[in-house]
Amino acid sequence: GKELVLALYDYQEKSPREVTMKKGDILTLLNSTNKDWWKVEVNDRQGFVPAAYVKKL
């Protein structure tokens, strides 16, 4: 099944490779191999968020 993460904080994208999320959002985790930036999918968009801003559910 898909792995989900919870947004712990708001995050505003700073580049086209990133995505914006709001605290409390549930996101689909696509890739967590990089310890600093995790790739997630939110609202049919894929991009990176800081790993410290999310936690695995």
Rank of each mutant, 00 (worst) to 15 (best):
K56A: 08
R17G: 15
A7P: 00
E13Y: 05
E13M: 13
E13R: 13
W37M: 05
V54L: 15
W37R: 03
L30M: 08
N34H: 13
Y9S: 08
F48P: 00
M21H: 01
D36C: 12
V42W: 08
A7R: 01
P50H: 02
S32D: 15
V54M: 06
L57Q: 04
L4R: 10
W37Q: 03
V42N: 15
R17F: 14
G1M: 13
W38M: 04
R17S: 14
N43W: 10
V19P: 01
V49R: 01
E3L: 11
G47M: 06
R17V: 12
G24H: 05
Y9P: 00
N31L: 09
N34C: 10
W37I: 03
S32T: 09
P50T: 01
V40P: 00
N31D: 15
V49C: 03
V19Q: 03
K55Q: 15
D36M: 11
G47Y: 05
A51Q: 06
S15D: 12
M21F: 10
E3N: 11
N34P: 05
T33E: 15
D25E: 12
V49H: 00
G24E: 02
K35L: 10
G24Y: 05
L27R: 02
K35V: 13
P50E: 02
M21E: 00
K2A: 11
E3K: 10
P16H: 12
K14V: 08
V40Q: 00
Y53T: 07
S32P: 06
K39H: 12
A51L: 02
K2I: 13
L57P: 04
T28D: 06
Y9M: 12
G24R: 02
S15E: 09
W38K: 01
L29E: 00
E3I: 13
V40D: 00
M21I: 15
K14M: 12
E13V: 06
V5F: 07
K56H: 09
L30S: 03
E41A: 12
Q12V: 13
M21P: 00
L8Q: 05
E13G: 15
Y53I: 06
V5K: 01
K23F: 05
S32G: 11
L8E: 04
K22E: 06
N31G: 07
A52D: 09
K23A: 13
E18F: 06
E18Y: 06
E18H: 07
L30N: 02
L27Y: 11
W37C: 07
N34V: 05
K2R: 15
D10T: 07
Y11M: 01
D10S: 09
N43C: 11
L30T: 06
N34G: 10
K14W: 04
K35H: 11
R45K: 12
L4D: 04
W38Y: 07
G47N: 01
K39C: 11
G24K: 02
S32V: 07
D10I: 02
T28V: 15
W38E: 00
E41C: 11
K23P: 03
L8M: 11
K23W: 03
Q12A: 14
L4T: 09
A7V: 10
S15P: 05
G1L: 14
L27K: 00
V5R: 02
L29N: 01
D44H: 12
L29Y: 02
R45V: 08
V54T: 04
N43R: 13
A7Y: 01
W37D: 01
Y9L: 10
D10H: 06
N43T: 09
K22Q: 10
P16W: 10
A52I: 12
Y11P: 01
L29V: 07
L27Q: 00
M21K: 00
V42Y: 14
L29C: 07
T20P: 05
Q46N: 09
R45S: 06
P16Q: 10
T33R: 10
F48W: 15
E13K: 14
M21A: 02
K35R: 12
G24L: 03
A52T: 12
V5P: 01
K39L: 15
G1E: 13
Q46S: 11
R45W: 04
V42S: 14
G24S: 03
T20A: 07
N43A: 12
F48Q: 03
D10R: 03
S15T: 13
A7H: 01
K35M: 11
N43I: 12
Q12D: 14
K22I: 09
K2H: 14
V49I: 08
L27W: 03
Y53E: 02
Q46Y: 08
Q46H: 09
T28W: 13
K23C: 07
K55C: 14
L30Q: 04
G1S: 15
W37E: 04
D36F: 14
T28I: 15
W38T: 03
P16K: 11
E13N: 08
L27H: 04
D10P: 06
W37F: 06
D10L: 02
L57Y: 09
N34M: 08
V42P: 01
V40N: 00
K39G: 05
K14R: 12
A7W: 02
R45E: 05
E13C: 12
G47I: 05
T33W: 09
D10N: 09
L6F: 08
Y53S: 10
V5H: 03
D36Y: 15
E41I: 09
V40H: 00
M21Q: 01
E18I: 03
L6R: 08
D44L: 09
R17Y: 14
N31Y: 07
W38D: 00
L57S: 04
K56M: 11
E18M: 04
K55L: 13
V5S: 03
N43Q: 12
E18V: 05
V5L: 14
L8G: 02
K22T: 10
D25G: 04
R45G: 05
N43Y: 12
T33A: 11
V49W: 01
P50I: 02
G47C: 03
D10Q: 03
K23E: 07
D25Q: 14
K55T: 14
T33M: 11
K56R: 12
N31K: 07
Q46T: 13
K39I: 14
S15I: 05
Y9W: 11
L29I: 04
Q46G: 06
N31H: 07
K14Q: 13
E18Q: 11
Y11E: 00
I26C: 06
Q12N: 14
G1W: 14
E41K: 09
M21D: 01
N43G: 15
K55E: 13
Y11I: 01
L29Q: 00
S32H: 09
E3V: 13
L30W: 06
L29A: 02
A51C: 07
L6S: 05
E13W: 05
Q12M: 13
K39M: 15
K55M: 15
S15F: 05
V42G: 13
K2T: 14
Y53N: 05
G24T: 02
A7E: 00
F48T: 04
E13D: 05
K56T: 08
F48H: 05
I26V: 12
I26F: 06
Y9N: 09
V49K: 00
V5N: 01
E41W: 07
G1K: 14
F48M: 09
T28L: 14
V19S: 03
K55H: 12
D36I: 15
V19G: 02
T20F: 04
K22H: 10
D36N: 14
K35S: 11
Q46W: 08
K14D: 06
L4H: 09
W37T: 02
D25I: 04
I26L: 09
L6H: 05
D36V: 14
E41S: 10
M21Y: 02
S32W: 11
R17I: 12
N31E: 15
N31V: 09
D36R: 13
G1H: 13
L30K: 05
E13L: 07
L57K: 04
Q12H: 15
Y53M: 13
P16V: 10
Y53V: 06
V49G: 01
Q46E: 11
E13A: 15
V40F: 00
G1N: 14
K23S: 08
W37A: 02
Y11Q: 00
K39A: 08
L6D: 01
K14I: 07
K22F: 11
I26E: 03
N34K: 07
V49Y: 01
L4N: 06
R45M: 07
G47P: 00
S15H: 13
Q46L: 08
P16S: 12
N34Y: 10
T28R: 11
N34E: 10
L4E: 06
